[in-house]
Simulated assay, not measured.
Amino acid sequence: MSSITCVPTVPSSGNTAELRERARGALLGLAVGDALGAPAENMKPSEIRSRWGRITGYVTDTPAGTDDTEYAIFSGLLLARHGSALTPAHVEAAWHEWIADRDEGPFRGAGFSERGTLENLRRGLAAPISAQHRHAWSDGLAMRAAPFGVFAAGRPAEAARLAAIDGSVSHEGEGIYGGQAVAAGVAAAMAGAPTIAVVASALAVIPDDSWTARSLRRAVAVAHRGERAVRSAVVIGGYPWTDLAPEAVALAFGAYAAADGDFREAVLTAVNMGRDADTTAAVAGALSGATQGASAIPSEWASPIAPARGTCLPAMAGHHVLEVADLLVPGPEEMTP
Rank of each mutant, 00 (worst) to 15 (best):
L78C: 00
F151I: 02
S3L: 02
F74R: 00
A229M: 06
G178K: 05
A258D: 12
A325Q: 13
P8W: 03
H135Q: 06
C312F: 03
V91K: 06
A110P: 12
A35M: 11
W95I: 02
L121Y: 05
D67F: 02
D61G: 13
P330L: 11
R218T: 11
V220T: 11
V91M: 05
L27Q: 01
I129V: 15
M1P: 09
I73P: 03
D243T: 11
G185L: 12
R309K: 14
S215K: 11
A294H: 04
A255R: 10
S303T: 14
R54D: 14
G109A: 06
V7D: 03
P240D: 11
D166C: 05
A136M: 13
R122P: 08
S201F: 09
I73R: 00
A184W: 13
A146Q: 03
G318W: 11
A187Y: 14
L77D: 01
S12I: 06
P39Y: 04
S113M: 08
F112Y: 12
A294T: 11
P337T: 03
A35E: 10
M335V: 14
L78I: 02
A164H: 13
R217I: 10
L78K: 00
H224S: 15
I4T: 06
I55A: 10
D101H: 15
G173Q: 07
P337I: 00
I48C: 08
M190Q: 07
N120G: 09
E104H: 10
A200G: 08
G76D: 01
L79Y: 00
V7H: 07
R225I: 08
L251F: 06
P88L: 01
A17E: 14
R54C: 10
E300A: 12
A31V: 07
R144T: 04
T60R: 02
C312M: 03
A110H: 12
A270N: 09
P240G: 09
R144N: 01
A31M: 11
A64F: 01
G192V: 12
D166I: 02
G109I: 09
T212A: 15
D103L: 14
P304C: 10
Y256M: 03
A270F: 09
A183Q: 06
R20I: 12
S215F: 10
A89I: 08
T195M: 10
V169R: 10
S299M: 12
A188S: 12
R155L: 06
E18F: 06
P147A: 00
G14T: 05
A202S: 13
D101T: 10
V32N: 07
D260V: 00
D139N: 15
A202V: 02
I165C: 07
A189E: 09
T117F: 01
T69L: 05
D34M: 05
V329G: 11
V230Y: 13
T195V: 15
T62A: 04
D276F: 09
R123V: 00
E70L: 00
A85N: 14
A284D: 00
A127L: 12
T16F: 08
T195K: 08
W137Q: 12
L118K: 00
V283W: 10
G111M: 13
